[in-house]
């Protein structure tokens, strides 16, 4: 059974709403969240804080162009 993350074509986006005071805090929480989920190559794609919290879209890249993509070699694709 392959690591399920190897089935991701390029990246995993996590979209959620974080309860926080400001955008700075939202950024910190976003990174912490992704690290807790085990992602290493993390980018904040979108973040907007309004009132009670922040709408965020955070990305964990599994493969970037030029990498060796496991899904390319998986014959069961």
């Amino acid at each position: 059974m392959p690591d399920i993350l190897e089935k991701v074509m390029d990246a995993v986006d996590v979209e959620t709403y974080l309860v926080c005071k400001n955008e700075e805090e939202a950024e910190r929480f976003s990174i912490e969240l992704m690290e807790k989920l085990g992602f290493q190559d993390i980018s904040i794609v979108f973040i907007q804080h309004q009132g009670p919290g922040a709408r965020v879209r955070v990305r964990g890249y599994i493969y970037k162009p030029g990498d060796k993509y496991s899904w390319l070699f998986d014959q069961s694709n």
Partner: peptide, 8 residues
Amino acid sequence: FSKGPITA
């Protein structure tokens, strides 16, 4: 978004 590659 300019901080990384475009995704599928």
